[in-house]
């Protein structure tokens, strides 16, 4: 059973547009962003989402000087896809 807590948000970084200034890393209140090790095509180390912790507050988006380097998504539904048991009884949501 997967009862992992769902984040309120999710972050996408456009690696081609990011110039690696690091302002988002500094800004993110739950510290969910880090600088990646990899260089992008233009020679910048780019920001990357750590994979969890985003609250969709949007402050990283606002401090980022590039128009489209960061997109913040907000969780709207926590949907449970019930896997049918062999008996046909749906599982209850758990989160």
């Amino acid at each position: 059973m997967n009862a992992e807590r769902q984040d309120r948000g999710l972050l996408r970084v456009n690696e081609e547009e990011c110039k690696g200034c690091g302002l988002c890393v500094e800004a993110c209140p739950p510290k969910a962003i880090a600088m990646g090790e990899r260089m992008n095509h233009y020679g910048y180390r780019t920001a990357m989402y750590k994979g969890s912790g985003c609250t969709a507050c949007g402050i990283c988006f606002l401090v980022c000087p590039e128009p489209g380097a960061i997109t913040v998504l907000r969780t709207v539904k926590r949907m449970v896809a019930a896997l049918q048991t062999e008996t046909g009884v749906a599982a209850c949501a758990s989160n």
Binding site: M1, N2, E4, Q6, D7, G9, L10, A56, G58, F61, L62, I70, T71, V72, L73, R74, T75, V76, K77, R78, M79, V80, A81, A82, L83, A91, C92, A93, S94, N95
Partner: peptide, 11 residues
């Protein structure tokens, strides 16, 4: 059971 999030663009 598995929980799958759905997202909308916030920013």
């Amino acid at each position: 059971s598995e929980s799958i999030a759905e997202y909308e663009v916030a920013y």
